[in-house]
């Protein structure tokens, strides 16, 4: 306690000299900045600083166990470039990029269409609205790992619920996570389902913003429901759509935890068929023989991809609506 008091002296002194001489509103502003400063420091030190450090690391043959790191220039990037040209079967890096593209290209539009349809239905019904909202939102607030493990059991080849149901209808049972052809889609289905609730809420909020009068006017003019949707709902939902497209694309590009939790030993298998760039980043960095530099170079590449995709998306999807 004594130490604390002692440490406060210089601060107390300067506070009396400066801040207390300010007007009351300005003092309030000062304190607002002081409090905002704490999360800012946290953000800079925990998120920004390591990000910048990763750029530096990507030029080294970085081994966390070693004292000195060897500078190797662009060698890690050259290695990624080489690995990407190999067949996906034997090159996890190539497989990771291929799969990540699949996750985004299939997952993002599917999730968008599904969530918009659900939001439209939810905005139509009048009874049990909250109940349905909860049902769709609940998966989103559930832990990804818990969801992943539940689905691992549901997907089990022999006694999993899905195959039991298939067998009950005399349909052929499926390998799901155990098959190279189905594993990616099995994981994607879970991720889409889990993320639906969030997108639905955003769309519902967007739909509420559209004035009823527009629809009434359209109805008077004799437009069909489809025409109303196409000419009123969709254009006016544009801000929500842009927001979700950007956000979901980024989240699919960063796929990690579901794949880690739903594949055997978290290896992104079978045969690299579900692995993602972020999973590779993790595996390369924390394997027996750590390749932090290579892993950092992968994150830089991923960062560049995310940046580019986001810029292009913003250019293409933000158009003003009359």
């Amino acid at each position: 306690m004594i130490l604390l008091e002692w440490l406060q002296y210089p601060f107390v002194w300067s506070y009396q000299q400066t801040v207390e001489k300010l007007s009351l509103p300005k003092q309030k502003i000062f304190w607002a900045y002081v409090f905002l400063f704490i999360p800012l420091i946290f953000f800079l030190y925990i998120r920004i600083y390591p990000t910048i450090q990763a750029f530096g690391m990507s030029f080294y043959d970085w081994n966390p166990l070693a004292v000195e790191q060897e500078f190797i220039g662009f060698d890690n990037y050259a290695e990624i470039f080489e690995d990407v040209q190999k067949p996906a079967l034997t090159s996890p890096t190539r497989a990771a990029f291929e799969n990540t593209v699949k996750y985004v290209v299939i997952g993002m539009p599917l999730q968008l269409v599904l969530s918009l349809s659900i939001a439209l239905m939810l905005s139509e019904i009048r009874r049990f609205v909250d109940f349905y909202r909860v049902i769709f939102f609940l998966p989103f607030v559930t832990s990804t790992i818990a969801v992943a493990w539940v689905f691992r059991w549901l997907y089990q080849p022999q006694h999993g619920l899905f195959n039991v149901v298939l067998a009950a209808f005399s349909l052929p049972t499926q390998d799901f996570l155990d098959s190279r052809g189905q594993a990616l889609f099995s994981i994607l289905a879970v991720v889409i389902w889990q993320g639906l609730g969030f997108a639905v809420i955003i769309f519902l909020a967007g739909l509420k913003q559209i004035p009823r009068t527009y629809y009434e006017a359209a109805e008077v003019d004799g437009s069909s429901r489809w025409q109303s949707f196409w000419n009123i709902t969709l254009p006016l939902l544009n801000p929500s759509i842009v927001y979700l497209v950007v956000l979901q694309t980024i989240s699919f590009l960063r796929m990690f935890a579901p794949v880690l939790a739903m594949t055997s030993q978290g290896d992104g298998g079978p045969l690299n068929s579900t692995t993602t760039v972020v999973l590779r980043v993790f595996r390369e960095a924390f394997g027996t023989r750590s390749k932090m530099g290579y892993s950092a170079a992968l994150t830089v590449v991923l960062f560049a991809v995310i940046l580019m995709v986001t810029i292009i998306q913003l250019r293409l999807t933000t158009r003003s609506v009359d």
């Binding site: 079967l89 034997t90 190279r180 290896d267 045969l271 394997g287 027996t288 023989r289």
Partner: peptide, 21 residues
């Protein structure tokens, strides 16, 4: 004599997976 035990194991896991196919 392993130089990267987890990666070397993964190679055989993958080869076996291919045989299963």
């Amino acid at each position: 004599f392993f130089i990267d035990e987890s990666a070397q194991r993964q190679v055989l896991i993958d080869a076996y997976e291919l045989v299963r196919e």
